[in-house]
Design a protein around this nucleic acid. Structure first.
Lengths: 223, 223
DNA sequence: CCCCCTTATATCGTAGGACAATTCGGTTCG
DNA sequence: CGAACCGAATTGTCCTACGATATAAGGGGG
């Protein structure tokens, strides 16, 4: 496990974990036993511990002294708090995107909207969920503010799975699409305030929707 | 370096570094050579590397593969980006504080304002800088949103020293105090929108002030 | 029969040594 | 004068070891 080209083991592992958490290969609350993971990934404890430390710093896992690490559980209350923050962060992103997006980025955004409409028409929930993630990421990147992007990623990661679940209803998809339309129209028109307002509205809707889903699903399974 | 009571070595070290960065014992761009630091802190490479990883995840140091870590340098452009984010984050904090602050917290906020006025009258720049940090932290904590608090800390830490510098002018202190007064009045009056607007205004002022200072001082010393 | 206390076991936190890979600065050679 | 070369410094990773701590298991007293 020596040569890694140009990427460090820790970065690779980190990405692996993030992906695993997003795709449900690691479930919230799951213990991360060092010995097991070392064997599973074929590495030694050093880099593994560094990776866990990094995950903890990003808020994806929780470390308890002398008790090891476990995938972080997010309570409904925390979810509410998170969406409060996302609202202003992505609101800012939308505003900046309306001001600073390049023509190419505007084209991309418009293309995503078109793809979303196609996905909805085809009742392709999975595809729509992907486009949804791409849409938000696109806006953030079009804001041309790396700091914002960093914060966004930190807030986004732990909720992706939940977002997907709540979009399983067609009704939710339709409402979501409508909100996206408003935001995109504002951005393409170069109207920062409308873009920000639209995004805030959108996240308020999404937030309450997901929180409600959580409440319903909280008993059936501990996701 | 065995028994640490209940705090891990990494957490202790991390705090040490954060403090060191804030107080200028580590300067931006400085290399973090593992062997040296191990000796300096009397620990082995394992915990040290974990600490560096954590610092990197918080954005305080930069790790380059096979080239080690160094204290992060923040360009003027990054500073602008950071203040754009701080504006909405702390704006949110002020709004929430106006809505949710407990009577005890409101008293504390009022007390800080009083202390600030005293400090200004005494031309106590250092005291005022401390109070300034405390004021902002207090608002964020009065927002009762742990996620927000976490993000805030991440954004706040790397700029503390700069903030201090730009407050060295009495004129800046006076303007800052005036802005604080507006924010606090809004919070105590329970006016969320005014509090948010006031905080945004305040951070815009501070941001441009600090950026200007940077521009002036950029040649004399690489802080 | 249940509860508390003692004893194992699993796991973490940290130390320390080792070594290949890589970077960097200075030197030699064309 | 530039390019290839060499050696020192440093990182990234592995390994082994061992005290400290938490959790689980078992055994004696109420």
């Amino acid at each position: 496990m020596t040569g890694k080209g140009s990427l460090s083991t820790v970065e690779t592992l980190f990405a692996e974990f993030v992906d695993g958490i997003q795709h449900g290969r690691f479930v919230p609350g799951q213990r991360l036993v060092e010995a097991d993971l070392c064997q599973e990934f074929g590495i030694s404890r050093g880099p593994l511990r560094e990776t866990i430390r990094r995950l903890a710093a990003e808020g994806l896992v929780e470390i308890q002294h002398n008790r090891g690490a476990r995938i972080k559980r997010m309570s409904r209350e925390e979810l509410v708090h998170l969406y409060e923050v996302r609202e202003v962060i992505e609101g800012l992103a939308a505003r900046m995107a309306a001001e600073r997006a390049t023509p190419g980025e505007r084209d991309e955004i418009a293309a995503v909207l078109a793809a979303m409409e196609t996905a909805i028409a085809a009742r392709d929930h999975l595809g729509y969920a992907d486009l949804n993630i791409r849409f938000h990421a696109l806006l953030v990147s079009a804001a041309h503010n790396p700091t914002l992007e960093q914060i966004y990623q930190r807030l986004q990661t732990p909720t992706m799975r939940r977002q997907f679940r709540s979009l399983l209803e067609t009704g939710a998809m339709l409402r979501s699409l409508e909100e996206h339309r408003v935001i995109i129209a504002a951005i393409l028109a170069g109207d920062p305030l409308a873009a920000e307002a639209g995004m805030r509205e959108h996240l308020q809707q999404s937030g309450t929707l997901i929180a409600r889903h959580e409440a319903e699903a909280s008993l059936s399974e501990p996701l």
